[in-house]
Amino acid sequence: MNGLDQLTPIILTVITASTPLLFAALGELVTEKSGVLNLGVEGMMVIGALAAFAVTTQTGSAVLGMAVGALAGAGLALIFAFLTLTMLANQVATGLALTIFGVGLSALAGTGFVGIALTPLQKLDIPVLSSIPVLGPLLFNQDVLVYLSFAMVFAVYWFLNATRAGLILRAVGVSHASAHAIGLPVKLTRYLATLFGGLMAGLGGAYLSLSYTPMWAENMTAGRGWIALALVVFSTWRPGRLLAGAYLFGFITVLQLHAQGAGFAVPSQVMSMLPYLATILVLVLISRDKIKIMQNAPASLGKPFHSAK
């Protein structure tokens, strides 16, 4: 029993480390399913983190903070969508620009918020159930965003596989030309999918600055947006596998922190490399199976669409 008790706080930190990745990657999964490759996740996340933090410290309302964080991510996504879908700009280049712009904008706008402390997001204490040993704190004493992230996994799964709109989105992602030919709204679908990606990346960022490390620091996403992008490939564009992937990475992050805390003789910088190295490893393991990637990746991913070419 004692062992289990020690395990509980570790699992709790795994959950907090995984949640931002899960949000951001889930949003990108939907975006990519529609055929749009938005490499600007990092930029949308960091903007979401700042916006959520700023609004929460100013108004005292974390809910408002989360909402504005998500909207800020969507705001950047809108720029991306306009440039790539309306102006037909190169998606890779625009995604990179989005990240550079987001990091720059948040650093500039966030100068007044450095060093301010914030009470972390409140846990929703579900009475009675949360006092069940071990399972109670894990399942019934999390903050609202953690529950939301799980709900979103199911929602996205359901949306993609069981709704008409989800079918349209997938069709647009597989072949925009065919989708357009049978009268599906290619551009509108992609706009909405990209905006959804922005909302979710913003929420992931909000979770970082409101709960994971309740503060604002320049560049605080530290590559999580890029890891989220890798997770989408890892998941082969399936929400269920994405959940597993996000938690695997949360686990690696926490493992690295605990190993540092436990005083392993490995230098801290080497431990900090772990999530990045793991990303590469995971990417290689999945991508080496070319056929599997080809069968699962949206066929028109990253390709521009112009109806009157």
Partner: peptide, 26 residues
């Protein structure tokens, strides 16, 4: 002004460039 202005301008420059580039083909 904060040092971060540089990054913001660099990002904006790339955005504007990508948007203007559309005019080479359209």
């Amino acid at each position: 002004t904060p040092a971060a202005v540089t990054g913001l301008f660099q990002g904006a420059l790339l955005f504007f460039l990508l948007a203007c580039d559309v005019l080479t083909n359209y």
